[in-house]
């Protein structure tokens, strides 16, 4: 008999719903920002309203993310111990600790998300301080904000998965693919949310998002299959309600059906894209539920 995985002998950190919501919303916030940046860099004028929408979404979600993380601490008032050493007030950073690096990344990302948010607001005619519009491309300042914030957006969307793999917990520590899966899912759920919110205001360019999300969904499916394979014997933990939820909720409801609906929407231009986007968001949420709770309960 081969020895059981050593991850089965460890204790659960009790990361539950606050963290699940953080992983979900953080993926969307980071994803929305880097989609906004990609649209700013590669898209035409048709994409501009959607990119603006992306920045309008990213910052408020980032604020919610910070609050969720603080609320999850058992000593919330000590949240700043992540950034400063409590005795000396010197900066606290461990580059080998995803949580330490992630705290800084989230703070910096919040800064750029705030700038881009102001820039997006300033594009509204009613806004008075027009100078703030320079925080959006095509100017140099706007490009810097888009690119640096976009890179941080990728980090915020993906590091949460890396953080899980850098533990000794079952499933999480038994694979190296969670960062990749969360990153793709962050891009996918952000595209879905922007497609939903943009239906009215930027209907003509929503199809580009639907095309993009279709690519993401295929990539996510491939990454999920690779994830299950990488788990080896530990994947047996998913021969349970969690595995059923993964297959039915995440794969069928959140990937396969939306792929079909997007196809329909792109071909006939009907409203099936709305249903697809809603299902993608639900699937993205269930993905975090399965990944986190199936390990917490093991």
């Amino acid at each position: 008999m081969s020895a059981p995985s050593s991850t089965l002998f460890t204790a659960p950190p009790e990361w539950h719903w606050l963290i699940i919501f953080y992983f979900f919303l953080g993926g969307i916030a980071g994803g929305a920002y880097f989609l906004g940046a990609l649209m700013d860099l590669f898209g035409g004028p048709l994409q501009r309203p959607l990119a603006r929408l992306a920045y309008l979404v990213a910052f408020p979600l980032t604020v919610v993310c910070g609050l969720l993380l603080i609320a999850d601490l058992r000593r919330p008032l000590r949240f700043w111990h992540m950034m400063l050493q409590s005795e000396t007030l010197r900066p606290m950073l461990k580059v080998w600790s995803p949580m330490s690096l992630g705290s800084w990344a989230l703070l910096l990302f919040g800064f750029f998300a705030f700038l881009a948010f102001l820039g997006a607001l300033a594009e509204d005619e009613r806004w008075r301080w027009r100078g703030l519009a320079r925080l959006r491309p095509p100017g140099l300042l706007g490009l810097v904000v888009a690119v640096l914030g976009g890179v941080l957006g990728f980090f915020v969307a993906g590091y949460t998965g890396v953080l899980l793999t850098v533990t000794n917990r079952p499933i999480w520590g038994d694979t190296t693919l969670l960062g990749l899966v969360f990153l793709i899912s962050g891009a996918s759920t952000a595209a879905a949310l922007l497609a939903l919110l943009g239906q009215r205001r930027a209907a003509s360019s929503v199809h580009a998002l639907e095309r993009f999300d279709s690519i993401m969904l295929v990539l996510e499916l491939v990454a999920l299959i690779a994830l299950v394979v990488s788990l080896g014997g530990v994947a047996r933990l998913w021969l349970s309600v969690w595995g059923a939820l993964l297959v039915l909720g995440v794969v069928v409801l959140g990937i396969l059906i939306p792929l079909g609906l997007y196809r329909r929407s792109l071909r006939f231009g009907d409203a099936s894209g709305v249903a697809a986007a809603a299902l993608v968001l639900a699937g993205g949420f269930l993905l975090r539920v399965v990944i986190i709770l199936s390990s917490e309960g093991a």
Binding site: M39, G43, P45, Q47, F154, L180, I184
Partner: peptide, 19 residues
């Protein structure tokens, strides 16, 4: 690698649309 692939997908999707 995932971030690079996602960026390329973004380039393809949004650029086509833009052109």
């Amino acid at each position: 690698i995932g971030a690079v692939v996602v960026s390329v997908a973004g380039l393809i999707s949004f650029r086509t649309r833009g052109s």
